[in-house]
Computed example of a mutant assay.
Amino acid sequence: MRAGYRRKILVVLVMTVVAVVTGPFGTFFDLTILERAYYWPVALVFITVPMIALTELTLYRLPGNLHPILRIAIGAFIAGPIGATALLVLDTMVRHAEFTPYNLGFRWVFVTLIGFGVGVFEGYLRPMYHAAPEPQPDADKTTSKPAEPEPPLFVRNLEPELGTELISITTQDHYLDVVTSNGAGRILKRMSDALAELNGYPGMQIHRSHWVALHAVERVEKDGRKCQVVLKNGTTLPVSRPNVPVLTEALEKR
């Protein structure tokens, strides 16, 4: 299981425990602790699952010219009615609430705001923090080592433990399989958006489904009209014919 999903599950579990104990939104007085012990797990599952799915979908699938926060807001707004309906149905069964447009709308706003806040933190602020470059020492304090280049914007999509040294990126349906020197991970993103975020990282798209870092290429193999690269980690990837001379030139200059 990816670390990102493990973290999301942990967050939902913590929220559930806190909600059961504290009884927010009147549930402390309306329900006993045993009733809250099944009310909040059910409510949070129906709220968080569609919210996470839709905010991630809109964040990575809507046009890149829309600000990420706006994309998250659209996903939270779309997911709001799903969680709101589930919450109101649960309230009619447990808390004797009435199924009215007002009650549905109130919960829609509540679910959307909560989902938007969590989505901004998880999908925008936290990745930016992990992608931020380490502060460089002052020039007058040390001259022994040149400053490390700033990592590309693309690495903010990766889990911190994967590092910033890219090896290859491969499309897999709507996902990208990303390999680094520390391991591999899968993210929901288009190859075109990934290329735009690589910010001049020394590599190239060798095939419509594959991008490689130049430093990771061990050799180029040709078999008739077919061509492929062998990476230093042993992976073999195809090279489309128009990219063969471009790749050859790039490898000579690295």
Rank of each mutant, 00 (worst) to 15 (best):
K8R: 11
L10M: 10
V12W: 05
L13G: 13
V17H: 04
V18G: 10
V18D: 06
T22N: 04
T22W: 12
T22V: 15
P24D: 05
F28R: 14
L31M: 14
T32F: 02
I33L: 14
L34F: 12
E35Y: 04
R36C: 07
A37I: 09
Y38M: 08
V45S: 07
F46K: 02
F46Y: 15
T48G: 03
M51G: 12
I52G: 00
T58S: 11
T58W: 08
L59I: 00
L59F: 13
Y60D: 13
R61C: 05
G64N: 06
G64V: 07
L66Y: 11
H67C: 03
H67T: 06
I69K: 08
L70C: 07
R71L: 08
G75Y: 05
F77I: 15
F77K: 00
A79M: 02
G80R: 01
A84C: 07
A84Q: 09
T85I: 11
T85Q: 02
V89H: 10
L90W: 04
T92G: 14
V94H: 09
R95H: 02
E98N: 14
E98I: 02
F99I: 04
F99Y: 15
L104S: 02
L104P: 11
F106Y: 14
R107N: 14
W108T: 15
V109Y: 08
L113H: 08
L113E: 11
I114W: 11
G119S: 12
G123S: 04
G123Q: 06
L125N: 06
L125P: 07
R126Q: 13
A131K: 05
A132F: 13
A132Y: 14
P133M: 08
A139K: 12
T142N: 13
A147T: 10
E148Q: 13
P149A: 12
F154M: 09
V155L: 02
N157H: 13
N157F: 04
L158A: 06
P160C: 03
P160M: 05
L162E: 04
L166N: 03
S168W: 03
S168F: 02
S168G: 01
I169N: 05
T171N: 03
Q172Y: 06
D173S: 08
T180N: 03
L188T: 08
L188G: 05
S192P: 00
D193Y: 00
D193T: 12
D193W: 00
D193I: 00
N199Q: 12
G200R: 09
H207Q: 07
H207N: 02
S209C: 09
H210I: 08
L214E: 03
H215G: 02
A216D: 03
A216Y: 01
V217K: 01
V220E: 10
E221Q: 13
K222I: 01
D223V: 05
D223F: 11
R225Q: 14
R225M: 09
Q228I: 00
Q228P: 00
L231I: 01
K232V: 07
N233G: 02
G234R: 07
P238I: 14
P242L: 06
P242Y: 04
L247I: 04
T248W: 00
E249A: 14
L251G: 02
K253Y: 05
